[in-house]
């Protein structure tokens, strides 16, 4: 087996005195889709926010342990550099309201003063929107504000914005929970396409979704990683009682 893109060892995260993540160990292989599941408050969102170091932006939030991206210690990297390698899509669509669709896609370049020629910009915008399955819907309205789009389109715009930076890992924090079933289906299809080129970690409350789109599933409970295995194993033959109870809907 090739070496994992992300290695998590004895990782802990805190809010003040409160320990949110307890001794997490996990290996994420390249070009796989991981579903992160668990009941509310189990630390799954905190876990993925630790990967691109968004966790530490909250007052009192700290983390310890080791997390390596391609062998490089995440917590020794410059967060700005790290976040260009680890893209994130949030629960609610958050396109920049002052920018057009076009500018939203290349926002990562514009805001960082990375100079691009017109043709480079056009190319990045087109390929990113195509990868996010939004190109056909917006190709004629690229210079309208991104906030005029529907919620599902806005979310795909946010995915395109993340993809434009060519990240190595894409984090989806309940990216479909605020969307209607049609938009959700589109984004699930998209995840299926994207895993050819990206490694994806998605937090989800929706077990069917996890079963449909992920290769592997990690089950968190009360800040601990209870079980991590192939999605098929987790759903058909979980080793832990807690996982089994959760999958069957006994709690959550």
């Amino acid at each position: 087996m090739e070496s994992p893109i992300l290695t998590v060892r004895n990782f802990n995260a805190f809010f003040g005195e409160n320990q949110i993540l307890k001794n997490i160990n996990l290996d994420i292989a390249q070009h796989q889709v991981w579903a992160i599941m668990g009941p509310s408050g189990c630390g799954k969102t905190t876990f993925i926010r630790c990967i691109n170091r968004m966790h530490e932006l909250i007052a009192n939030a700290t983390a310890s342990g080791s997390m390596q991206l391609n062998g490089e210690e995440v917590y020794d990297m410059n967060p700005v550099v790290l976040r260009r390698k680890v893209g994130m899509v949030f629960q609610r669509p958050n396109p920049f309201p002052t920018m057009s669709i076009y500018d939203n896609v290349i926002a990562g370049y514009l805001l960082n003063n990375i100079k691009l020629s017109k043709s480079q910009k056009d190319e990045i915008v087109e390929t990113s929107l195509q990868r996010a399955a939004l190109w056909r819907e917006v190709s004629s309205t690229l210079h309208k504000k991104g906030t005029f789009l529907s919620g599902g389109q806005q979310q795909r715009l946010c995915i395109a914005r993340a993809l434009a930076m060519n990240p190595e890992i894409l984090l989806l924090d309940e990216a479909t929970s605020a969307l209607d079933p049609v938009s959700t289906a589109k984004i699930e299809e998209l995840i299926h396409e994207l895993k050819k080129e990206y490694t994806i970690l998605m937090v989800t409350h929706n077990m069917q979704q996890a079963a449909r789109v992920s290769d592997n599933t990690a089950f968190f409970y009360l800040g601990e990683l209870v079980e991590a295995d192939s999605t098929k194993t987790i759903f058909t033959n979980p080793k832990h009682e807690k996982t089994q109870d959760y999958i069957r809907g006994h709690f959550g």
Partner: peptide, 15 residues
Amino acid sequence: TMKEAALALGVPYYK
């Protein structure tokens, strides 16, 4: 979330 969107793209805080 607006601020987080920018930070998550690797935009420094002051920018």
